[in-house]
Design a protein around this nucleic acid. Structure first.
Length: 419
RNA sequence: GGAGAGAUGGGUGAGUGGCUUAAACCACAGGUUUGCUAAACCUGCGAAGGAAGUAAUUCCUUCCGAGGGUUCGAAUCCCUCUCUCUCCGCCA
């Protein structure tokens, strides 16, 4: 949600920034509605003041048994006007909100300009592509040949874009998530939460999935949605709160399943478990003071990176361009992991600074020097567990169809190889 | 699922139609004094918005879970909805 004062003061700049995100110029319309709303409000407020004064007089007169018919007549006149103006104010308020709630966040000044993912900029790289003296297989080839990944069984149960894992691979998934959670809580300073996987409308409005992106979500019953990411419950923990500055920064993490309908991705990545309706993820969320959010994004990125470094898997980091960022983000880094079987880099984490965009929707502020200031929110994957599993299978595969287990996981997997 | 109770500022909580300009306490911020892992006292302190002014500031409006209604006037009365708690039932 945008600050209306900012739009009022910088209409051209606002329009230009929105254009970068594929939106039409709306500032003049916004300002016009806002102006009508405020004009209505001003008249309404003076009438309400008048009514209050007269009402007080009536109270006193009645107590003294004096005639109040003159005052009553006056109020009768004002009342109709008040009702009409109230209605008008409501209409204008709703019109304004309807526009504002659907506009994406403003890109940070360091975000590269661009149309789509091809314009993303390389930020940094870590490690090297592993060399194989055989043709590396794709993760599902490895898994299916071992009989430990089964898509047919999953489709019998639930249709396409689901998977059934078995035995060692199932255990490996559990090992990965435990490793990530321990790292983030014991080393990176995040607090672990277990949160609901079903949320109500309000929470999804708060983080920006609703009202625009309901098609990407699954519903459960009449009032609940399945979370597409733990960002939703973790960030909304502070919705409608006025925090004390001493509580900040809040750094939280949670391991949850994520549910996405992938409505806009028909036909994409249909083979394998790269793009599923259900997957698990360890999420990182930070709630910070505005002046710290830029540093916090780097810190969060490093926390996510620390997982891949420990697992010793090559990756690169891209700064997303203006056209490729998510709705609520003002700046996003994608960590892309190297997948030898795919012969490609694939997103394994997305770390975003949403600045005050979500906190305005959630009405989350903190008190500093007597003032209430909107917090800045950040979220990032630390990491997507399913895709980390894929990365391990493909990067650590051996010629005989086995998979080495990264040293960092030994504590959790208790074995040097997959089978 | 059944029955009952409730929702008031950052927190606890008073307030049953005009004397509320939302009490009091806690927390928080500033200060005074004594002093040393602090205490006592004093002062300030709900939120959102509008208007005027170069500005410090001043004035006004709205908000007591949400939305309607009654009334000259609603935190207070009525209706609808949402949520929370307690007990009973069912249940991992």
């Amino acid at each position: 949600m945008h600050n209306i004062n900012y739009i009022r003061e910088n209409p051209t700049e606002f329009d230009n920034l929105m254009k970068l995100r594929g939106e039409k110029p709306l500032s003049s319309k916004i300002i016009e509605i806002d102006k009508q709303k405020r004009e209505t409000q001003t008249i309404l407020q003076s009438l309400l003041g008048e009514r209050n004064t007269i009402s007080k007089t009536i109270g006193i007169q009645k107590k003294n048994n004096k005639d109040v018919s003159f005052e009553m007549k006056k109020i009768e006149e004002i009342k109709n006007k008040i009702n009409t103006l109230k209605e008008l104010e409501n209409i204008k308020e709703n019109e304004l909100n309807a526009i504002l709630i659907r506009l994406p966040n403003i890109p940070h000044k360091t975000v590269p300009l661009g149309k789509d993912e091809n314009d993303n900029k390389l930020y940094k790289e870590w490690g090297k592509k592993p060399k194989f003296n055989f043709q590396p297989k794709k993760h599902f080839e490895i898994g299916e040949e071992l009989g430990l990944i089964n898509f047919e069984l999953a489709s019998k149960l639930s249709g396409s874009r689901f998977v059934v894992l078995k035995k060692q691979i199932s255990k490996l998934e559990r090992a990965i998530s435990n490793f990530m959670l321990d790292k983030h809580t014991e080393v990176n300073g995040y607090t672990e939460y277990s949160v609901p996987f079903l949320v109500k409308n309000n929470s999804l409005y708060g983080t920006g999935q609703l009202p625009k992106f309901g098609d990407d979500l699954f519903t459960a019953g009449e009032d609940h949605w399945l979370i597409p990411t733990a960002e939703v419950p973790l960030t909304n923990l502070v919705r409608d709160e006025i925090l004390n500055v001493k509580q900040l920064p809040i750094r939280s993490t949670s391991y949850t399943p994520c549910f996405r309908s992938e409505a806009g991705a028909a036909g994409k990545d249909t083979r394998g478990m790269l793009r599923q309706h259900q997957f698990t993820k360890v999420e990182l969320v930070s709630i910070v003071e505005p002046q710290h959010s830029e540093d916090e994004l780097e810190r969060m990125l490093q926390s996510a990176e620390s997982i891949l470094k420990d697992l010793e898997i090559h990756y690169r980091i891209m700064t997303l361009c203006t056209g490729d960022m998510g709705f609520s983000a003002s700046k996003t880094y994608d960590i892309e992991v190297w997948l030898p079987g795919e012969d490609n880099y694939r997103e394994i984490s997305s770390c975003s600074n949403c600045n005050d965009f979500q906190s305005r929707r959630m009405n989350t502020r903190y008190k500093s020097d007597g003032k209430n200031i909107f917090v800045h929110t950040l979220n990032g994957s630390g990491l997507a567990v399913g895709r980390t599993l894929i990365a391990i299978l493909e990067n650590y595969q051996t010629e005989d169809g086995n998979v080495k287990i990264p040293d960092a996981l030994f504590k959790y997997f208790h074995n040097k190889t997959l089978i």
